[in-house]
Design a protein around this nucleic acid. Structure first.
Lengths: 219, 219, 219, 219
DNA sequence: TATGAATGAGCCTTCATTCAT
DNA sequence: AATGAATGAAGGCTCATTCAT
């Protein structure tokens, strides 16, 4: 009758909010590593240290689980960028800060980034949710560019600015991937590099022109 | 008239290469529409108008089939870009021609593009194959940029050029998506727009500078 | 005022019998609406306004719960019929009263009827329990018929009477269903109709013979 | 390399129609024994000696499988009754033949009967399909009764006849169950018994009246 | 060569049931 | 007494893949 012979059942009783976070954390990690389809709901449950039914009880379907992941990471990303941009003075500074925050996010939450960037595409199901994110980010960028244009009394057309914004987002995404693969990359430096091209242009760069953070308004 | 006694067999006896092409054609179309996982080998067989075992006999596993698709479309794309670049004079012209060829490809072989861009990512399995493509394209771009740098006796570092190349590829990809979604987009115009940013920089643009095809060496 | 310091507990402390009744009431309703298998223990708990473990504490397993439902409704039904029959004078009157009580029960406790008639069949598990009910009812009927036979100094064999009783029960059940579906049906009338056939026979009916309640002994 | 060491794989290659029949046969048996819900698609596959996917390939969903069973057995039953009735002369003869065919069916295809009678009820899903059957059978009966009524220049109302038909069907069903349980019962005899009650009425029976097959028109 | 027939393996999802509080 | 939290166990369905013809 020695009740201690068998270890007490590991019935972890945790409040709802904590578990929910645990699950999404685990899911992001697993989805990032294995990909959406290769990931089993069981995998996620295991990673979260709970049983499968709990995943369903807390987050719902596999699809809903993935969307929860996307949403959380999107919010983090958008928040980070928004906050960073808000602290900038002058268009180029804001742009630089935004890009730096972006690369910082990619470095800090690599898994989240992978979920958003690699997984969400390709699964037609999540197109809508993803489009929302991309549009949000592109809008932030477009606003900055428009402001810069106005500041410089420039003449770039609104549609051109939008195209440009999407292109910039694409460039940033690709750079992020590249940076991850190379396992190098200080966010500051990477951001500077991109702003350089964008602001001065390759032509200028080659003629020896450069832009660097010290050129921002109040530095 | 003897030969008409037995009706021609219901199936087509076709040489290997033709069948293979048939199958890959069908596969690209189906993968593009439905996505890798949602696509059944049966779907592909049906689309190709043959029976499932044939798919296995000619191309192999579903995974191999997808890789075959990727490879063929990659080759097409790389070929198109390479050819276009070869005809250019001067760095900016070559860049512009390359981009134009790229956007042309996206417009002409939308399915192929979708397979490469949306499907191949996300399936961790194909990462390697995909990386190869991106690296190839980025190299072409990097070479052009390096040449331009040399021509201009510029001082841009080799690594910076590589980063820049990847960024440009990313920008082009994003622009392609954007253009597809907007259902607008003459390849010429799109290419010009991108070269503009790249060459002159946003800063320059806003100061009224521009670049256009007529500025190329021998136009 | 001390007692008001701690708010009353959110749950109702109720005596066992009341709770049990609550639960079975809810269960009958839910089983009738959704069917045995489609019904979740959670559904029942919700309908009863309590938590799931209570169901297990008070009534036990889902299976036991269903049996409890069957039993209660059976008892109600048998009681109703028994009481009705007891008040009759003469065989035909007793038969008529019994049938009327039966149709009345179906009208009044439609859910209970559905549980007994539609759900209990089909689930092999409850066959035994159900057989008990049918046998009980059939016996009552058989007794009445035997009495009638004796009264009339008839010569109908005992086995024939039993078969007849079962047939009558089946006829009543089918008629009940029919009546429910047609959403018509005064129990009095329906009972009369059935007694008519049973007593006079179709042959007689067609020759213009009839039976009606006024023909009972002491009306 | 003795290829006969391991028994040849039991890959039974059979034409579609045969397999389909095999499957439905097996399904009827299993559904009858275990009940709809307790039956696994795997159970059916095992019983049919094939693998589960075949069941899906040939018949579809579990639900569709059950419906297929219902339909086949319904058709058999209706056919049997219809044929039997067609050979009769005079209302009572036709009725008697119909009932006899019915009890014969129950005896011959006990499983089919169980599927139709016990399983189909209770599963709300199959209500529609089942209603169709019951209505068909009831109509046949009603037509016979109407004819009898006309022949006898009777005055029984049309609605009464319908109710009567349903009651008779119910009586037959219940009798069938009873007969099955008692493991007795020659169809001829059972049919005779029922016709007796129906034609002569219990009252008449007790007064010594009877009906028997020899009383039919051309016997 | 070409295919209809067949299957092993696995994943999502749902519940009845029980612990720990 | 009462419940929110947790899980073992299963079942339906699909699909990539292969055999036998």
């Amino acid at each position: 009758m020695l009740s201690s012979v068998r270890p007490a059942p590991a019935f972890q009783r945790l409040p709802r909010s904590v578990r929910e976070r645990q699950i999404v954390d685990a899911a992001v990690a697993v989805f990032a590593r294995r990909g959406y389809h290769a990931t089993t709901v069981d995998d996620v449950a295991d990673a979260a240290g709970i049983s499968k039914p709990m995943v369903y009880a807390y987050v719902g379907t596999k699809e809903e689980l993935f969307i929860a992941c996307m949403r959380r990471e999107s919010e983090r990303l958008v928040q980070a960028i928004t906050d960073a941009v808000a602290q900038g003075r002058g268009s180029d500074d804001r742009l630089w800060r935004g890009l730096r925050a972006f690369f910082q996010f990619v470095a800090d939450y690599r898994d989240g980034w992978r979920v958003l960037y690699r997984q969400a595409r390709g699964q037609e199901t999540f197109a809508e949710e993803l489009a929302r994110l991309r549009t949000t980010v592109a809008s932030i960028v477009a606003d900055m560019l428009a402001q810069a244009n106005a500041d410089a009394k420039g003449t770039v057309a609104r549609t051109d600015i939008q195209t440009l914004a999407f292109a910039l987002v694409g460039a940033a995404e690709a750079t992020a991937e590249w940076v991850i693969e190379q396992e190098q990359g200080d966010p500051d430096e990477t951001a500077t590099r991109l702003v350089n091209v964008l602001w001065v242009g390759a032509g200028g760069l080659m003629r020896g022109q450069t832009w660097d953070p010290s050129m921002r308004p109040d530095t």
